[in-house]
Amino acid sequence: MADRRRINGPPGSTMPPVFEDDAGQPEIKNGKGRDRAPNVIRKMFLKTGVTPSASGSAYLEFAGSSNSGVSGLKLSCTVHGPRSLPRSSPFSPHIVLSAHVKYAPFATKQRRGYLRDPSERDLGTHLETALRGAIIADRWPKSGVDIIISIIEGDQDRETSKSQGDETWDMMNALSGCITVASAALADAGIDCVDTVAGGVAALVEDAGEGSTPRIVVDPIPSDHEKVLGACCIAYLPTRDEVTNLWFKGDLPASDAGLYTQLVENGIQASRNANRVLVECLGEATS
């Protein structure tokens, strides 16, 4: 029987109302735009050794943007191992790497469940590809290492109700953060790598306003721009000048090959910048 003594909520799910600041302005997306130069990544905070019980751990935080709803990305990574594989598992001449990426249930606008959904598994596979190139795997035969990343806060703009397709671009930012933080945690655990691998994102964006042409920016925040046309996330080893993981998504005409090359170059640049922070952090930790 319906409860008539109280004021009940609506029976189904509803979308929260969003009030516009200015009635004359039809744009829902706040058009503040990007407050950094196109080739500058956001400020980062990286610290290793935050979880005492794990053999290696790191915490990474990206600064938010001037848009008040964007709170930045917060990641925590723990590395367990190298440890011996269970007796039942088959012989492996290499270290067996397994990467788990999990959004905290409260990390995004849409609540995430406790079980990993396909997009999180997908992120885990990307991360594994990026790290497997960096780790010198044959130094630990018959052993395994688990890399567990929890995304405590994903950077999504909470103020807008309109988030058309932004989630897919947010995943790229999340992956680049995951790569950087996992690399720091691996170094903290003392697992040998050929180099420190760091992630970087570059995107081709279109800004609001008349007559704006698409331009390439690094470390994009999707809500800063009117539209993201394409983006790529790159895991890069600076001293070897090699890419271990490349993930591109977008819609580029094949005739314009320069655009793709530029995107990749900018992605590498972003990853170099992140790597500088990473190296400095590791230097501080050892000194």
Binding site: S92, P93, E128, T129, A137, L246, W247, F248, A254
Partner: peptide, 18 residues
């Protein structure tokens, strides 16, 4: 007129060979 839609790196199993 071809267009590029997505690229992914596939982890080559060569890294796991003895």
């Amino acid at each position: 007129n071809l267009k590029l839609l997505s690229i992914r790196t596939v982890d080559p199993p060569s890294r796991l060979t003895p």
